[in-house]
């Protein structure tokens, strides 16, 4: 059990490319922290610095209160699950899981006990004699997990571990990872570019963009109060609608606010907006029924909007609608894209 603390961590690659520009995050003991952001935002680099696979240009990384900047990956007492699983192709499943323990000189019967225990937990017991290439993607993923848990490390690191699985399996593994992490109570850092994965897994969600932390906090807090237009459009699918503030039917803007945002599910059709709410005249451009809900893609004031309606929608392409949003569901952002609060 351990905490992970990053203090002003920076990474500059040769040629002065600054990949991580001063990131500070405190991860509580036993918490699952998800780093999310678009490709190239520095989230993987940050994770690899925690793992010890990248040198740290500036700042400190501490595990369990001890600065580990100069300590090699094997001595940091971490385990990592890679995107492509990185299983040793020539070793059987059993040996894949046992390899790290053998290198540490763990006694043979202890290794055996731990591997079988992990295999039991992950339902891999019948596959211990197979080689990785004889396994399906999901099974390989489990072996990679098994290799991490037999070590009983202080910290788990996940580098986009589900991105090579199909959608159904991904959902299933997501739940399993969450349950496993909770039952083992091991502090974890999880990197993903999938905001749904990020929302559902995280105890602490860290949204990164261009090498800096845009916002960190509980997933629903971030969803409800995004700190910037970037976070607002990155978290949530479909993304938040944004329009320039001050148009017809707009409520009075907050001081300094330039952009007005509202989530697709907060928009209403043909319902009075109420005091201080937003009212827009929109034209339906496309209808996307997905079963339990439908998405209406509309145009209003030269902007494209998405409105979520429950169940089947009677709207057709070309229909004129009145889209409204109550005042308490509106988000305001200033010129720089930062959130403006009342």
């Amino acid at each position: 059990m351990a905490t992970v603390d990053l203090k002003d961590v920076r990474k500059v690659y040769a040629g002065n490319v600054e990949a991580v520009k001063g990131v500070s995050i405190d991860i509580a003991d036993g918490a699952l922290c998800v780093l999310v952001g678009p490709s190239g935002c520095g989230k993987s680099t940050l994770l690899r610095m925690v793992a010890g696979l990248e040198t740290i240009t500036g700042g400190t990384v501490s595990i369990d209160g001890k600065v580990v900047n100069e300590i090699g990956p094997a001595e940091r007492d971490i385990a990592m699950v890679f995107q492509n699983y990185a299983l040793y192709p020539h070793m059987k499943v059993y040996d894949n899981m046992a390899y790290g323990l053998r290198n540490r000189g763990t006694p043979k019967d202890e290794i055996d006990r731990r591997v079988r225990e992990a295999a039991e937990t992950l339902e891999l017991a019948h596959l211990l004699d197979r080689r990785p290439r004889e396994l399906s993607g999901g099974q390989r993923q489990r072996v990679a997990m098994g290799r991490a848990i037999v070590r009983k490390p202080k910290v788990f690191l996940f580098d986009e571990p589900l991105s090579n699985l199909d959608a159904k399996l991904r959902g299933q593994m997501r739940v399993e990872i969450k349950n496993l992490q909770r039952s083992l109570g091991v502090t974890s850092v999880y990197v993903t570019h999938d905001q749904l994965e990020a929302m559902t897994l995280a105890d602490t969600l860290v949204v990164m963009n261009a090498g800096v932390v845009e916002q960190a906090g509980a997933p629903l807090d971030i969803y409800e109060k995004p700190a910037s237009t970037f976070v607002a459009s990155f978290i949530g699918a479909p993304p938040m609608n944004m329009i320039p503030a001050g148009g017809d039917g707009h409520p009075e803007a907050l001081a300094g606010a330039q952009t007005l945002g509202f989530r697709p599910e907060d928009a209403r059709i043909s319902t009075p907006a109420g005091e201080g709410g937003l009212t827009l005249a929109a034209v339906v451009e496309a209808v996307e029924p997905v079963g339990a809900e439908s998405f209406l893609y509309c145009a209003a004031e030269g902007q494209h909007l998405v409105v979520r309606v429950a169940g089947r929608s009677g709207a057709n392409i070309g229909d004129k609608l009145t889209v409204t949003t109550p005042r308490e569901k509106l988000h305001w952002f200033d010129k720089a894209g930062r959130r403006v609060s009342a």
Partner: peptide, 28 residues
């Protein structure tokens, strides 16, 4: 793949062990 090398590093395989346990068998 680079990930395999990194996995070995995290598993505590030094240069010699990596050569003996992973590189040699793969080069058979």
């Amino acid at each position: 793949p680079g990930e395999l090398i990194e996995a070995a590093r995290i598993d505590g395989a030094g240069p010699w062990r990596f050569f003996k346990d992973i590189l040699m068998p793969l080069s058979r």
